[in-house]
Amino acid sequence: MEMQAVEAAQRWLADQGVSQVRDGWVSDEEPDVLLTANQVAHSWAGDVFAEDLDTDQLRLAFGLLDLLDDYWVTCEIRFANESADGPLPADVLWDGYRQRLEADLGVEAVTYSLWVDWFEDHATSATAFAEVLGKDIDRVVAERSDVLLRRARRVLECSGPVRWVVKEPTYRTAVQLSALHSALFRGLRASFHDVYGDLEPAAALALLDQLDLPANTQHVAELRHVLAAGHENHYRSPGAWDDAVRSCS
């Protein structure tokens, strides 16, 4: 969380007549009505881009995301990026995502945004995955810093919908670092279970067999079973996971 960005967002909201109180938010128009962060995001986040789609406005939007910690702010960022006046400045956009993925704070809104918006859309998944991890995976393995590992884990865990051909090189590099093995396992599992999950069974099984996982890691045997049987996705092979559970119990 960048305090300057948060403070800028607070000032901007104050200019819109919105202020934070102990249990939520209030507006000058209805000072007796307590608003949630989600209501503030839905009502005002889009207005950040009402006049310009420049660097300052994008940074302001990220400050609003830090302040409200609400997924809807990320939706407004993407709407602005895809609007007729878009795209947003790519360097600022992806740097904003990377910074928050590296932060020692909860980032559920950011990872959810990657998962259901940027990664599920094949028009954006390759670029998004490259920007938040793919381009940096060699540096992650070489430096092994806490912030880079934190970002890598978070991206791997929500990378299920990314096309296999896009993410496999990053997965294969991540295997070199045992600190990423549990996150990589969750990425592989999501690649099978997500509605839009994507994997190549034989290649995924080869990666799975290289992972050094804690003994209490659940569903390793089941995942190995479905991959060995050649299944690509839970929803394209109904019953395959249940068969694996029975076989491995």
Rank of each mutant, 00 (worst) to 15 (best):
G106T: 08
C248Q: 15
D242K: 15
E7S: 14
D69R: 14
L213P: 00
Y97G: 05
R22I: 09
P169Y: 04
A206H: 00
K135R: 15
E143W: 10
A228H: 08
R224A: 02
V162N: 00
L149E: 14
G230I: 06
Q99F: 07
N38T: 14
V162W: 01
Y97Q: 09
A179V: 02
Q20Y: 00
L184W: 00
E2W: 12
R224H: 05
V92L: 12
D136W: 03
D91Y: 07
V33W: 13
A244T: 05
G24Q: 13
L149G: 14
A206C: 04
G106W: 05
H42C: 01
Y97C: 08
I137N: 01
L34F: 14
A90K: 10
H231Q: 06
N81V: 06
K167H: 08
Q57D: 11
S249E: 13
A202E: 14
K135C: 10
G106I: 05
I137K: 01
V226N: 04
T127Y: 03
E76P: 06
V141H: 05
D47R: 12
G17M: 09
F49H: 03
A174V: 02
F185S: 02
L35V: 08
V116M: 11
H225A: 10
E143V: 11
D117M: 12
L88S: 04
V226F: 01
A84E: 15
A174P: 01
D66M: 06
V92I: 15
V73L: 08
E30T: 15
A90Y: 05
N233E: 07
P169S: 01
T217S: 03
V40W: 05
R150M: 08
A9Q: 10
G96T: 04
W94N: 04
V165A: 13
A41C: 11
A37V: 03
S191Y: 01
D47H: 10
G230V: 07
L156E: 00
A202W: 07
D121R: 08
G106Y: 07
N233Q: 11
E108P: 02
